[in-house]
């Protein structure tokens, strides 16, 4: 079954560090098997580069099972490559054929500066969470878990929003580099649950303020984020976020 029969051309963004301007480099990868994952193909290329005394390609990756949200390649114009509802690490070479040329770029957004090659700095996402993406409950304060029933549909919707892996594909795909899908997933997750109630208004106001400060663009509802999201986070979360924000902003008394 394992037939190493593909030869591919890779055009990969190389950038020494955040100050460097960067450029595309072209690589030939030989004997690629269709059972390899996309990142394993990069592993093999890197091994070859190291042996030849060349600089390997730096890219972010960790769990390689589609849940940690670390991997972040913009492949032939699409975050995480051609498959739907998929992360880069779960993309397999079955998606390609012999002779293909593949262009790989880092996520592009001012709020995601390139660190090296295909690695970007997504700490802006952490700062958005710091600005309010939590429920303020100190350890030990909690009441019994079943003291507060939650309507199943709402719990399911909250879970669907909370499935966000924070990879940043939404920002990468958006023509405005907007982080609204990421932000709306967190706001929706917490707004849909009764536990999130007490901080519902301040949370959304503070998180949007932080998002604006980080330099993300605003949302024009094109839906590109939803189309590339590996966890299929729904665009309707953005509408919910808008409603939450407008309601909170207009009724706030300060």
């Amino acid at each position: 079954m394992s037939s190493n029969n593909m030869n591919l051309t890779l055009k990969v963004w190389k950038q020494k560090n955040s100050q460097d301007t960067g450029r595309f480099e072209t690589y030939q990868v030989k004997n690629v098997s269709e059972e390899m994952s996309f990142l394993e193909m990069f592993d093999i290329l890197n091994e070859e580069l190291i042996r030849e005394g060349k600089d390997p390609i730096a890219f972010d990756h960790d769990c390689r099972e589609g849940i940690c949200g670390t991997c972040s390649m913009y492949i032939d114009g699409k975050p995480h490559g051609p498959w739907q509802a998929n992360t880069t690490c779960q993309l397999h070479m079955r998606a390609y054929k012999d002779g293909d040329t593949i262009t790989v770029e880092p996520w592009r957004a001012n709020a995601f500066p390139v660190i090296k090659d295909l690695m970007v700095d997504r700490s802006s996402f952490d700062r958005i969470i710091q600005s309010g993406g939590y429920i303020s409950v100190n350890t030990g304060n909690a009441v019994d878990a079943n003291a507060l029933p939650v309507e199943k549909d709402k719990a399911d919707a909250a879970f669907a929003a909370a499935a966000c892996i924070g990879c940043g594909a939404c920002v990468a795909a958006c023509k405005n580099s907007s982080a609204m899908l990421f932000l709306s997933a967190k706001v929706s997750h917490l707004a849909l649950l009764p536990q999130g109630g007490p901080e519902r208004k301040t949370r959304v106001l503070n998180m949007v303020a932080q998002m604006d400060k980080e330099g993300f663009g605003s949302c024009t509802n094109t839906g590109a984020c939803e189309a590339v999201c590996p966890k299929e986070i729904s665009l309707s979360n953005i509408s919910r976020l808008n409603g939450e924000y407008i309601a909170a902003g207009l009724v706030s008394e300060k």
């Binding site: 114009g77 592009r108 024009t220």
Partner: peptide, 28 residues
């Protein structure tokens, strides 16, 4: 104002664009 700001949010653009695979041309 929004169009200008949104464009400015991506200093370096892509070599290959997502195009119509993610959204309708007129929405962009």
């Amino acid at each position: 104002a929004l169009t200008v700001k949104n464009r400015a949010a991506r200093g370096v653009g892509y070599a290959v664009n997502l195009g119509n695979r993610g959204s309708k041309w007129y929405s962009r």
